[in-house]
Simulated assay, not measured.
Amino acid sequence: MLREFKEFIQRGNVMDLAVGVIIGGAFTNIVNSLVKNLINPLLGLFIGRIDLSNLAIKVGGATFKYGAFINAIINFLIIAFIVFLLVKAINKLSNKKAPEAKPAPPTAEDYLKEIRDLLEKQGK
């Protein structure tokens, strides 16, 4: 069982996934900082509030923090756009046109067909 686990961990896909999760976590922190420190103040200039996360509506005893939801939407849109750009760039690199395959050299059958056609033309 230990050997199977070792083989599982050493697969390339598992290591790629681990690296992706770690980088994704770090990237999320960067995007959160971007939204909190740059985008929210910019939006705050237009709506009159700097911190969108404090926007809330109280209904009865419940508080609905729609500002935090707006922050989450902004974070998602930024991350989705960056991932779109990355996938587009990777696809562009991996979809380079493969060199066109050279046509196969004529076979003996092709030569025989040509000879037959020439003989038919001469016989007419």
Results as ranks from 00 to 15, higher is better:
1 M>Y: 07
1 M>C: 03
5 F>N: 12
6 K>T: 06
7 E>N: 09
7 E>G: 02
8 F>G: 08
11 R>H: 07
11 R>M: 06
17 L>I: 12
17 L>V: 00
17 L>S: 10
19 V>R: 00
20 G>I: 05
21 V>T: 07
22 I>C: 11
22 I>Q: 00
26 A>C: 09
29 N>I: 06
30 I>W: 00
31 V>E: 06
32 N>A: 02
32 N>P: 05
33 S>I: 04
35 V>G: 06
39 I>C: 00
39 I>T: 03
39 I>L: 14
40 N>H: 02
41 P>M: 06
41 P>L: 03
42 L>R: 14
43 L>F: 11
45 L>D: 07
45 L>P: 05
45 L>M: 13
50 I>M: 11
56 A>L: 05
57 I>N: 00
58 K>E: 11
59 V>Y: 04
59 V>D: 10
60 G>A: 11
61 G>M: 02
62 A>P: 03
62 A>H: 10
64 F>G: 02
65 K>S: 05
68 A>C: 09
71 N>F: 01
71 N>Y: 03
72 A>H: 11
74 I>M: 02
75 N>R: 10
77 L>E: 08
80 A>L: 15
83 V>R: 12
83 V>C: 02
87 V>G: 06
91 N>V: 12
93 L>R: 13
98 A>F: 03
99 P>H: 01
101 A>H: 08
105 P>E: 12
108 A>R: 12
108 A>N: 12
111 Y>D: 13
113 K>C: 04
113 K>I: 03
114 E>F: 04
114 E>R: 14
117 D>T: 14
119 L>T: 06
120 E>F: 11
121 K>A: 14
122 Q>L: 15
123 G>M: 13
124 K>P: 06
124 K>C: 07
